[in-house]
């Protein structure tokens, strides 16, 4: 089964997403920030990365950039609850940097799962 790496600084958010994904049969790894996520990916590359954008330490945008640099083929879904600027802006930036899909939080579960399935079958 495909392995998915979850990067988000909010533990309850990670828990909720994990539950959703594991129910679909995916193997889920978690990282609280971009730096940890990169380390995990390096050790054991996942099939898909779902990352939040606004995080302490290494921010999501930075993470995506670094991932793309090191691992050009990595598949990434970016999510954002927004902050100083609107979530759409963050997501647009993420997309332009290489995230395949972007979602604004709170994400609709069904749509997310559908997107994950599409990405992993390609």
């Amino acid at each position: 089964m495909a392995r998915i790496l979850l990067i988000d600084d909010d533990a309850p958010v990670r828990r909720t997403l994990r539950k959703m994904l594991e129910r679909q049969g995916y193997e889920v790894e978690e990282a609280p920030d971009g730096k940890a996520g990169l380390t995990l990916y390096q050790e054991n590359p996942a099939d898909l990365i779902i990352t939040d954008l606004i995080m302490p330490e290494m921010e999501g945008i930075e993470t995506i950039m670094e991932l793309r640099r090191r691992f050009p083929d990595v598949k990434i879904i970016a999510m954002s609850g927004g902050g100083q600027i609107r979530p759409e802006q963050y997501l647009q930036i993420a997309k332009s940097l290489g995230a395949q899909h972007t979602f604004a939080k709170p994400v609709e579960m069904k749509l997310l799962l559908k997107t994950v399935e599409e990405l992993l079958t390609v």
Partner: peptide, 14 residues
């Protein structure tokens, strides 16, 4: 908003 979106995500998701 960020916090709320996160929390809402958790509420809606769960």
């Amino acid at each position: 908003a960020h916090e709320f979106n996160n929390m809402l995500g958790i509420i809606i998701g769960n």
